[in-house]
Design a protein around this nucleic acid. Structure first.
Lengths: 160, 160
DNA sequence: CTTAATCAGTACTAAACTAGTCCCAATTAG
DNA sequence: CTAATTGGGACTAGTTTAGTACTGATTAAG
């Protein structure tokens, strides 16, 4: 339920790599090596992240990418927005939508609230926390409930 | 970002209809009329909801569906689970997954926590609240932050 | 016992989305 | 100028989603 796309997850890994690294420009291929992701994919993601203002870039030779803000000032919601757009839980939540059962439907409004709750949870998680740079507990998250960690995601693309 | 599928949204409307109605069996076609959804789709969804134990059913003529529990005892997380399976935010969260960058990746663990926070938010929203039957404020949700309501989703299928 | 209504299970299809790759133009340091 | 980069697309295969259809099982009622 409610999964984020692989690409968004990849992007987070890239951002975390930048957050953990030195304060300099990293080229796309450098980041590809560091993250073990395919160069093409890394490049595509960095473009999106740049578009969203999460990373700054330098062009030409000696160009590359760096975080546009401090890791503590980038949150999970912004990353999601950058990669998946500001889509909401249901289509109701978008402004231009016409619904045939508008009158009789009282569900939409409640989804909105759930949506907001989730958004706030995401806004409370900074990149430094995601990257594990920040040792302080995650704000407003119930840590006692976290299950035992399992092995992480397959991040290398399937061969084609 | 983080959208639920249309079908899950439809299912919620169906459940809300049952929650708001009389305490009797409703046939699939009856519910299709009430919700203005296609009978085939309603039927499919009810089967899934039955499978997940959210509705009970009676077969044969005079058969139909009813909620298996009180509306206050059904929560949004259960509905999501029923329709979309217990998928998590990232594939990391599933038990059998092998990841090529396992050693160097510290991101997975944090997503898990976010995942839990979201799950708890969903568990705190009951069907009675989704259906608008419950006038009490949604537990642990920041209502002051809810944006002005916009028009809900197009729920009728596109013609084919 | 026959019939009609109804759920159960499954298979199928078209459309939409996702992930991944590739190409070429623009930019810049040396 | 040339080599190294990013910027902005287009393209494709594969997967998922949404929607429909069919066939069998079950049950109430005549």
């Amino acid at each position: 339920m409610l999964r984020i796309s692989k690409l968004t997850d990849y992007a987070t890994v890239i951002l975390a790599t930048l957050a953990a690294g030195e304060k300099r420009l990293y080229t796309a291929s450098e980041l590809a090596e560091l993250t073990r992701l395919s160069p093409a994919t890394v490049s595509k993601l960095l473009k999106k992240l740049h578009h969203a203002g999460l990373v700054s870039s330098g062009r030409g030779s000696h160009g590359g990418y760096a975080l546009a803000k401090l890791p503590s000032q980038i949150n999970a919601a912004a990353i999601l927005d950058a990669l998946e757009g500001p889509l909401a839980l249901t289509e109701c939540s978008t402004t231009h939508s016409n619904c045939s059962i508008a009158g009789s439907c009282h569900v939409g409004h409640s989804w909105q609230r759930v949506n907001m709750a989730i958004r706030h949870a995401l806004e409370d998680v900074s990149l430094s926390q995601l990257a594990g740079l920040d040792r302080s507990p995650l704000k407003s998250l119930d840590l006692s409930a976290s299950r035992p960690t399992v092995s992480p995601l397959t991040r290398m693309p399937r061969p084609r």
